[in-house]
Simulated scan of single mutants.
Amino acid sequence: MTRQFDVDPGLKGSGDFEAVPGADPAPGKGRKVRYRVDVEKGLDLDAALFARAVQETLNDDRSWAHGGAMTFERISSGDPDFVITLASPGTTGVWCAKSGLDTTVDNVSCDSAATQRIMINAYRWARGADTYGPDRMLAYRQMLINHEVGHRLGHNHENCRKPGGLAPVMQQQTKTLEIGGISCRPNPWVYPSA
């Protein structure tokens, strides 16, 4: 989870998805949110590692599960509340466009709200962003999961307000850590001090 991987920023995959097999029970007592993890067929990335990262990140007390508010359960069949999808940049662009979002300019991820899918751009998952650098890949991946799931849970973008403070998880941290002259530090968590 700390390494970078090679993924072509212009990669256009098959567009076919496969659910990561198995399940991870919801560990908490809060409102249960059921999700499935799909990975685009043909991606040379570890699907099981991706699924584990999603489950561990979402159920961390610093994430949306904070204080027992929610608990996240991964399923591979049945009816999920949403589907977290790891896909090539090209396929991510197609699915995000279904919700009126253009992810092709900065090669980013999105919550394709008009569909069931949260699209995680495989290029960003593999390579990260300049704002985090190559030494903070785990933190970047945690931010990516928390940010996009945050949209699905109804949260909009936020910006830094305190110079030198931690960026809100709902800031577009892949693009920048500086907004309106206020520079913040990278932060992957909803509740970083928990």
Results as ranks from 00 to 15, higher is better:
C96Y: 07
A26D: 03
A65G: 05
K41M: 08
V149H: 06
I75F: 14
A97N: 14
L153R: 10
M119D: 01
P163Y: 06
W64M: 11
M170N: 00
D24T: 14
G30R: 15
R117I: 01
F82Y: 13
A126L: 02
M1H: 04
C160E: 04
L138Y: 05
F5D: 08
R62N: 03
S99M: 15
D79C: 08
G150A: 11
C160T: 15
D81R: 04
R74P: 05
W125E: 01
Q55P: 00
L166E: 06
T103K: 03
R141K: 14
P25E: 12
T115F: 06
H151W: 02
R152F: 05
T92Y: 03
Y123D: 12
P134H: 04
L43V: 04
A129V: 07
P89W: 12
E148N: 06
T71A: 06
G28W: 03
G28N: 05
G90R: 02
F82T: 07
P25F: 07
L45M: 15
P9D: 12
K12G: 00
L144S: 06
R62G: 00
R152T: 11
S63N: 13
F50W: 03
I182A: 00
G10R: 13
C96I: 06
H66S: 08
A23F: 06
S14W: 02
W95A: 00
R117M: 05
W125K: 00
A114I: 02
P89Y: 14
R52E: 06
V54S: 02
D111T: 01
E148C: 02
A23P: 00
Y140V: 09
A47S: 14
F82V: 09
M1S: 10
A69T: 05
E148Y: 08
Q172P: 00
Q55L: 12
P192W: 13
R52L: 14
P186H: 10
K32G: 09
G22D: 09
D102H: 02
D6C: 10
P168I: 09
V54H: 09
P9R: 10
A167L: 14
G180A: 09
C184L: 08
Q55G: 02
L86W: 01
G150H: 07
T92W: 04
S76Y: 11
R161W: 11
P188W: 07
A194S: 07
S99Q: 03
D44I: 04
R124Q: 11
Q55S: 15
Y123S: 04
E148K: 08
R74H: 14
T104D: 07
Q173I: 14
V7T: 15
M137C: 05
I75V: 15
R52D: 05
V54C: 13
A114Y: 02
L11A: 01
N59Q: 08
G10P: 01
T174H: 12
P188V: 14
Q173M: 09
N156E: 12
K41H: 01
H151R: 06
K32M: 07
F82I: 09
A139T: 06
M137Q: 13
G67H: 01
P168C: 05
R34D: 09
Y123W: 15
F72G: 03
I84S: 05
P27N: 10
A51K: 12
F5A: 08
N159V: 15
V54D: 02
